[in-house]
Design a protein around this nucleic acid. Structure first.
Lengths: 98, 98
DNA sequence: TAAAGCACTTTGTTTTTCAAAGTTAAATAA
DNA sequence: TTATTTAACTTTGAAAAACAAAGTGCTTTA
């Protein structure tokens, strides 16, 4: 049996990134502004965490106009979904001592 | 509905402290050296995380001699147990979108 | 023309994490 | 008896991460 924390994904050590993923796994797509309001973050802080998630290819972005307003929408990728689930599995195993 | 990440406990943002709690919730008592080996940490790093957990009163320590060797053993406190469970509940709710 | 909203980027500070080395005390080996 | 080892830290300092605040570019609405 290896190190119990070894299977945890470092990207998900952050509560904010965990929060983003949790929202996106249930909601399919969420806008920058919705995330900002839900998680009560400053733009910069949110943007940088979203960037980390994008770099990892756990998220993809779509920029569009909704009516006349610019809108940035985030989606979870297949990789993101898998990685998040793997992380939750690892967490569960660790907690249950499996 | 409040901020979904608001109910998470900052002390458990750290994978190492999560790991320690996971071990102690199943094992009742674990020595410094066992933790060090299980989690593959340097003494200093482990000691400082244990200290954080102790400050929060999530852990208590017992120093004793086992045979002729000094032994430091860690136990989870009732507060620690409750806080850890509360954190896991918050996590679960967040993930499931409750 | 001015002000406001969106989605950033940049800057700089604060906080956290960590390894490495040093410390203290007891135990065992030479 | 002197030296080494083990346990469990503490201290120091560096690197990484998190964050707020301010600035940017673009568009829209007043």
């Amino acid at each position: 049996m290896g190190n119990p924390i070894g299977a945890l994904n470092k990207i998900f050590d952050s509560r904010i990134r965990l929060g983003v993923m949790s929202i996106l796994i249930v909601n399919k797509s969420v806008s920058f502004n919705e995330l900002k309001q839900l998680l009560e973050l400053t733009d910069g802080n949110l943007a940088s965490h979203l960037n980390t998630l994008e770099q990892a290819e756990y998220l993809k972005v779509q920029k569009a106009f909704i009516g006349k307003k610019t809108n940035t929408t985030y989606y979870i990728t297949e990789l993101g979904k898998q990685s998040f689930k793997a992380h939750l599995d690892a967490l569960e195993k660790m907690i249950k001592g499996i």
